[in-house]
Design a protein around this nucleic acid. Structure first.
Length: 104
DNA sequence: TATTTGACGATTT
DNA sequence: CAAATCGCCAAAT
């Protein structure tokens, strides 16, 4: 919408369960394909903590945000698996299958 | 108002 | 093929 952050939240919140998106994808979706870092920053700020499924946002490499997750990489892995996303033991996700594309 | 930092990504060495 | 470096955009100080 008006702000960069809000656009990020809107997009992330629209991600369906069982699917994940990369920071780059979100950045590109909102109009700033090079602002992948700000996407992460927007989630870091997390003004709407609780309604933003940050655990569905992963790196372009398919790795989840291990190391700085909200409660721990184990929790994130559990959350993703609970939604139907297959997470490897190394916290990697098959983007070829779970990479969500803007489509109703 | 200017400088530094920062949940990343892609490219080059 | 793996590691290191550069580049991008916006917010925080």
């Amino acid at each position: 919408m008006s702000n960069f952050f809000e656009s990020v939240y809107e997009y992330v919140k629209k991600v369906p369960e069982g699917k994940v998106v990369t920071y780059g994808d979100v950045a590109r979706a909102i109009g700033s394909p090079r602002a992948s870092r700000q996407v992460g920053w927007a989630l870091h700020s997390n003004p709407q903590q609780g309604i933003i499924p940050c655990h569905r946002v992963v790196f372009s490499t398919g790795s989840v945000c291990t190391g700085f997750a909200f409660g721990g990489p184990e929790v994130q892995k559990a959350l993703l698996e609970a939604e139907g996303v297959e997470v490897s033991e190394d916290f990697q996700i098959d983007l070829s299958k779970y990479r969500w594309k803007y489509a109703e």
